[in-house]
Amino acid sequence: MLGLLMAGTLMAQGAKLPEGVTLRTLDGKNVQSSVIQNDGKPVIISFWATWCGPCMLELKTIREQYDEWVEETGVKMFIVSIDDARTAARVKGVAEKQGWSDTGDDEFKHYYEVLLDSNREFATALNIGQDPPHTFVINGKGEIVWQHKGYQPGAEDELIEQVRNLLK
């Protein structure tokens, strides 16, 4: 059974990222999921929530290396919060305090793009259950080439390795 499931995992590689799903930016604007792109260069999407411990750990860990990742690979990381009405108002504060979104200071060179998916419409379209984190690597054509559920320390090394593979 497990083998079948894993074969299934391979089946969908290459699926396109949905483009017409409505997401929200930190300043309250509606945008469509087609904004998730990087001019032909790789993209990482990480689903997270303010109440999710492993997500916070993952995003903090990657923050420490993100400037180097961008310089090396040109990758752009979109972090999509699935916080619902209870905690969605916290997302901006967390992202700005942690140095995940650009607030105009120059502590870091590069920042994540933060989007909100309050009713999990985008998460559902990408077949993510309710448990973040869930991470995707998207190639320059907007195709999903790799995805991973959960976060255990060290998973960030696998993630950037997948991005590097795209550049080979």
Partner: peptide
């Protein structure tokens, strides 16, 4: 909901 946030500080 009112909030203020910048690098290193958030209040709501």
């Amino acid at each position: 909901n009112m909030s203020y946030s910048r690098r290193g500080l958030s209040a709501s």
